[in-house]
Design a protein around this nucleic acid. Structure first.
Length: 461
DNA sequence: GTAGCCTTGATA
DNA sequence: TATCAAGGCTAC
C-alpha cells in the first residue's frame, strides 16, 4: 500500500524547510524585513511567496508559540519531566515515543537482569521489558487517548496524582491556580485513592498477566471485593468507580465552593447568626422549596447517567427519589456541617443555618440532623467513597421497586464497588458495618424532612 | 532506536 | 480561538 505522506507533498512544493524552521524564520523576518519582501528575490517559487506572505499577513509567523504553563510533574514511567498527558498518564517525550513504537511494532521484550529493573531517565534504555511493564503499570493505554484541551477537573486530578516532593516544588513555583488545602486529611485521602485507581486502571491485558493480590492492598476487604471475581470484574469495578466519582464531582461542584466559603467564614470567626434575622420564615421556606425542586431535577438527571440506572422506568425512579432524596442531599452537603453550624446556601442570599433548621423542622429534628452529620463526618469519608455510597443507597434491596431483578443486580455491583473502594482506602474491618448502620438514620431523616410543611411552621411560631 | 521539536487536528 | 495530545521528522 502506498501511503500519502503529508510532508513529502510539502517538499514537492519546496515548503518543508520553511515550515520546519517556522520559528527561526519568524525571528529572521522580524530581524531583517528584507526577507519578507519576496518580490526582491525573483528566484523564489511563487507558491512560497504567497504562502509566506499570507502567513505574515495573518500574523502567524510573528506570534511566538506559547508553551503550556501547566506543570505535569514527573513522568509516571521513568520520573523524567513529563511534557503532558500521553496515552492517559503524565509522561515524558521518551516514554511517549517508546510506548508508541512498542505498540506499532508489537514487539515481545525480554528482561536479562532479573525482571526487577528500576526505570530512571538514565537507565530507561537498559531494559525494554521493564520499561514496557512500567508503562502498563503506570496506566498507559490507547483507551487513555484524548485529543484537545484538558478539562480543568482532569488537570486537578493530575495534580492529586503527583508525588509529595513534586507538590512541594510546585507550591513553591506557584504554577497551579487551584487551591491546595494539604492540611485537610480528606484531600490527602482523595489523592491516595486516585493514586491507587491510576495504578489499577491499565489495559485489560495487564490484568490477564498479573495477580490482583499483587496490585491492591491486603486488608479485610480484599477477599470481599475480589473473591469470585475474574479480571474483567475488576476492570468493571474501576470503570464504575471512576464514573461515580466523575458524576459526583460535577454534581457537587457548587457545594465545594460553599465549603470554601464556610472555611473562609470560620477562619475570620464570622458570626453566621447575623444572616438569620434579615429574612422572614416565608422567604426561607420558599428558598428551601426552590432548592429542593432544583436538587430533585438535577438528581434525576444525574441518576440516569449512573451506569445501570437508566434501565429503571419512571415509576421506579420516582420511588427512589421519594425514598432517598434527602439521604442523597445529606451526603452531598455533609461537609458543610462545620463547628455546630450548617453552611449550605439555599440561594445566593439564604443560608440554611442552624437557626433556620430549627424553625423549618423543629428543634428536635434539627438536632437529630446535626447529630447524624457529626457522626457521619467522624467517618472521614473520601469524596470517592461518598460518590459510591450514593448509588449504593439508591439500589438498597429494601426499596419497593417494580424491577426487583435489576435492583438486586445493581445492588450486587455497587456493593462490590464499595468494598473495592474501602479496600483501596485500607479501611478497618468494622468500618463498613458501622457506616451502613449509621446510614439507616438517614432514611428516618428523609421522612422527617419530607413531611415538613409551612402550615406546621406557622403554628409552631 | 531514542527523544526533542514541530505540525496537525480535536476539543473546551 | 486557545490549548493540548498524537504522530511525524530528524539529529544523535
Amino acid at each position: 500500500m502506498v501511503e500519502f505522506n503529508r510532508n513529502e507533498n510539502m517538499d514537492f512544493f519546496g515548503l518543508s524547510d520553511i515550515l520546519k524552521n517556522k520559528t527561526r524564520l519568524s525571528n529572521n523576518i522580524n530581524a531583517n524585513p528584507e526577507i519578507c519582501d519576496s518580490s526582491s528575490n525573483p528566484n523564489s517559487p511563487k507558491i512560497v511567496e504567497n504562502s509566506e506572505l499570507n502567513k505574515i499577513n495573518n500574523n502567524e509567523l510573528s506570534k511566538p508559540k506559547v508553551k503550556s504553563q501547566f506543570n505535569f510533574g514527573k513522568c509516571k514511567v521513568c520520573k523524567d519531566k513529563a511534557t503532558g498527558i500521553h496515552y492517559g498518564i503524565p509522561s515524558c517525550e521518551g516514554c511517549k515515543g517508546f510506548f508508541k513504537r512498542s505498540i506499532e511494532k508489537n514487539e515481545k521484550y525480554v528482561c536479562y537482569f532479573g525482571y526487577k529493573c528500576v526505570i530512571t531517565p538514565k537507565q530507561r534504555k537498559r531494559c525494554k521489558y521493564c520499561r514496557w511493564r512500567s508503562c502498563l503499570a503506570a496506566g498507559m493505554s490507547f483507551e487513555g487517548i484524548k485529543m484537545g484541551r484538558i478539562p480543568k477537573i482532569e488537570k486537578e486530578r493530575a495534580k492529586f496524582l503527583m508525588d509529595d516532593d513534586e507538590l512541594d516544588e510546585e507550591n513553591q513555583s506557584n504554577q497551579l491556580e487551584c487551591v491546595n488545602n494539604r492540611n485537610d486529611p480528606r484531600v490527602e485521602q482523595i489523592r491516595l485513592s486516585l493514586k491507587s485507581l491510576l495504578n489499577l486502571n491499565p489495559s485489560l491485558d495487564l490484568f490477564k498477566s498479573l495477580n490482583p493480590y499483587t496490585l491492591i492492598p491486603r486488608t479485610s476487604y480484599t477477599e470481599l471485593c475480589i473473591t469470585n471475581s475474574n479480571e474483567n470484574n475488576i476492570f468493571i469495578l474501576t470503570l464504575l468507580k471512576d464514573r461515580c466519582y466523575q458524576l459526583y464531582k460535577d454534581f457537587t461542584l457548587e457545594y465545594q465552593k460553599q465549603y470554601e466559603r464556610a472555611i473562609r467564614l470560620i477562619e475570620k470567626n464570622f458570626d453566621c447568626s447575623i444572616f438569620s434575622y434579615n429574612q422572614t420564615l416565608e422567604q426561607v421556606w420558599k428558598a428551601f422549596c426552590l432548592m429542593t425542586s432544583d436538587f430533585t431535577r438535577r438528581m434525576v438527571r444525574t441518576m440516569k447517567l449512573v451506569p445501570g440506572f437508566d434501565r429503571f422506568d419512571s415509576k421506579d425512579i420516582a420511588t427512589i427519589v421519594n425514598e432517598r432524596l434527602f439521604v442523597c442531599y445529606g451526603l452531598c452537603v455533609t461537609k458543610l456541617f462545620l463547628n455546630n453550624e450548617f453552611f449550605v446556601m439555599l440561594d445566593s442570599n439564604t443560608q440554611l443555618s442552624k437557626y433556620w433548621m430549627e424553625k423549618l423542622f423543629t428543634v428536635t429534628t434539627s438536632q437529630k440532623i446535626f447529630d447524624y452529620h457529626a457522626k457521619l463526618n467522624s467517618f472521614r469519608l473520601t469524596d470517592g467513597e461518598i460518590a459510591i455510597l450514593i448509588p449504593w443507597l439508591f439500589c438498597s434491596t429494601n426499596l419497593n421497586l417494580t424491577n426487583q431483578e435489576l435492583l438486586k443486580e445493581l445492588h450486587s455491583y455497587y456493593t462490590q464497588v464499595l468494598y473495592y473502594e474501602l479496600n483501596l482506602n485500607q479501611r478497618n474491618p468494622d468500618f463498613f458495618n458501622e457506616l451502613s448502620r449509621h446510614l439507616e438514620i438517614a432514611t428516618d431523616i428523609n421522612s422527617l424532612v419530607k413531611s415538613a410543611s409551612f402550615e406546621d411552621m406557622v403554628i409552631r411560631k
